[in-house]
């Protein structure tokens, strides 16, 4: 129960942060990447702020504790290989993000205040994940959720 409340609370902080930062606003996201056009550098501050805060926080957390407060272990990815799957997938993600202006972390909070536009994006994104997972499953066991 504590775990669920904590998840809900951190989800709320995440969604609020995303919403006020501009990451859930496709016009702003696309302008960040449009250096040759209507450039808006705001997203440097989102990513910089989030990254520096998290990096400092993680060092403190991992330094102070052997395990998290409500769980037996830190669930960290163990895969260390940089392969074609990682780079190809990331390149494909970039193409989709550049077309739509929504990334997954931006789109979910936007469901709280957006309209049909973000619903269409999220619906299609879920179909994309299902499709990729099915194709992947034809070859080998699907990747475990992390």
């Amino acid at each position: 129960m504590q775990k669920l409340l904590l998840s809900g609370l951190t989800g709320m902080i995440f969604g609020l942060g995303i919403a006020i930062s501009g990451m859930a606003n496709p016009a702003k996201v696309l302008n960040f990447f449009d250096v040759a056009g209507s450039w808006d550098p705001s997203l440097i501050f989102v990513m910089g702020g989030a990254l520096i805060t998290t990096a400092i926080g993680y060092v403190l957390v991992f330094g102070a504790r052997k395990k998290p407060v409500f769980d037996a272990e830190f669930h960290l990815p163990i895969n260390r290989t940089i392969d074609a799957r990682l780079i190809g997938g990331s390149a494909i993600f970039g193409i989709g993000w550049g077309i739509a202006g929504f990334c997954p972390g931006g789109a979910i909070p936007a469901l709280g205040f957006g309209g049909l536009d973000v619903i269409a994006f999220v619906g299609a994104m879920i179909i994309g994940i299902v499709l990729a997972r099915s194709l992947d499953g034809l070859r080998h066991k699907p990747a475990k959720a992390f």
């Binding site: 780079i87 990331s90 193409i95 989709g96 997954p104 789109a107 994309g128």
Partner: peptide, 16 residues
């Protein structure tokens, strides 16, 4: 948006 969503879904799955 739908096209972008579909592509994002495939990409983030493989890109983990």
């Amino acid at each position: 948006l739908a096209l972008g969503g579909l592509i994002v879904g495939v990409g983030v799955y493989y890109g983990a």
